[in-house]
Amino acid sequence: MSTGNGAARTRLPLRPLPVGDHGLLVELDDATAVEAFHAELLRRAAAGTLPAVREIVPAARTVLLDGLADPGRLAAELPGWDIPPAASDDRPAIDIPVRYDGPDLADVAALWDTTPEDVVRIHSGTEFHVAFCGFAPGFGYLTGLPERHHVPRRATPRTKVPVGSVALAGPYTGVYPRSSPGGWQLIGTSDVELWDPDREPAALFTPGTRVRFVPVTAETSTESPREAR
């Protein structure tokens, strides 16, 4: 079902690449096009007009379709699809409480050429959305920061990033759903439960979810109070 907002449907430039005998990797121009194409795939899957497929995995510039009986046939069809721009997710944004106490907050402030207080203000003032998921169950790659606030990974990855770390790398913000090695810049900590197999859906972040980070101080946090800096 179209949302009926009359958005112009367009032919998106897309390049299907072969992935084995039963897969397609569809390359698109940018994250916005990925979102629009992914939304169209889900619409067609819901309407029963997409061929049976096992996995649909959106990522930064691509969407992987795996487990297709005849990928060549779908690849031939794709250039003819009219695809409307992705409508913004109409679910309300999820608020993620964050203590901005990460060990790399000062480094990020230096990279942004500003103060740690400004990093908190800018980061918590940005509306993010989940571009895609991966790395670990519950991990979402969140976009929303403008290019001037993109930061490199740390030169030396940490062997252990604590669970709940709110971190930046490249164009993305992420929250570590469990403790793991990682090279992202840590700016804060959250107690949010990103992955709960007993919840439906298990992942709090799914592609398209809108997210806002809300600064909390150690005093208002429910767990592991820390010294305010």
């Binding site: 992935v19 084995g20 897969g23 990797l25 996995e55 995995v57 959106p58 990522a59 930064a60 510039r61 691509t62 969407v63 992987l64 795996d66 895609f132 991966g134 790659y141």
Partner: peptide, 10 residues
């Protein structure tokens, strides 16, 4: 590459 989906058997 920018992160992309990885199939079984890659």
């Amino acid at each position: 590459l920018p992160s992309e989906g990885m199939p079984l058997g890659a």
